[in-house]
Amino acid sequence: MYGAAFPLALSLSFAEDACVLGYPVYFHQGFENCETLKSQEGVHALITFSGRWIESAYDACATISRCHERFFLITSSDRTLPNVMEKIRLPRLCSNEYMNVLYLLFLDLVLLELLRLAG
């Protein structure tokens, strides 16, 4: 999971539960060397609620998205990145508290699917 500090902090409980099920979750705040990231198999997701991260560093975000076969984008922004398998479009809300709740519900749905796969 790539993103700013706040969405990644909300993902911590999800990561702990996923690891217990045998699905390790790694966090990257900021941008790393793409060659290092290529060696990490799995599903990669970039999380930017408002899309400011994409706007401020589009080239770096695009490089990360090109590095992976299975790449998801979670944002409320209209802008997208290359090589995105699925864009999960969050609604634009007047309060971040509502966005937090929606994001946590989304992570719970993912966790339920991981439970189903593990069972």
Results as ranks from 00 to 15, higher is better:
36 T>Y: 13
101 V>D: 06
60 A>M: 09
75 T>E: 03
30 G>S: 06
41 E>S: 10
36 T>D: 14
76 S>L: 00
40 Q>L: 11
112 L>E: 09
96 N>L: 09
65 S>D: 12
37 L>I: 08
108 D>I: 07
82 P>I: 02
65 S>R: 05
79 R>W: 06
103 Y>N: 08
55 E>T: 13
114 L>Q: 07
40 Q>K: 10
105 L>A: 12
100 N>C: 11
71 F>K: 06
67 C>Q: 12
33 N>K: 07
74 I>N: 00
43 V>W: 04
60 A>S: 13
61 C>W: 04
92 R>W: 01
41 E>M: 09
103 Y>M: 09
105 L>E: 11
56 S>I: 01
86 E>Q: 14
92 R>Y: 01
55 E>I: 06
98 Y>Q: 11
74 I>W: 01
58 Y>D: 02
54 I>N: 08
87 K>N: 02
31 F>G: 00
35 E>G: 03
37 L>K: 02
49 F>M: 13
71 F>V: 09
33 N>S: 08
93 L>S: 15
64 I>D: 06
103 Y>F: 15
57 A>W: 02
107 L>Y: 03
78 D>Q: 04
85 M>Y: 05
30 G>E: 02
97 E>N: 15
27 F>C: 00
73 L>G: 04
61 C>R: 04
89 R>M: 07
36 T>V: 13
87 K>M: 05
98 Y>I: 03
94 C>L: 02
34 C>E: 04
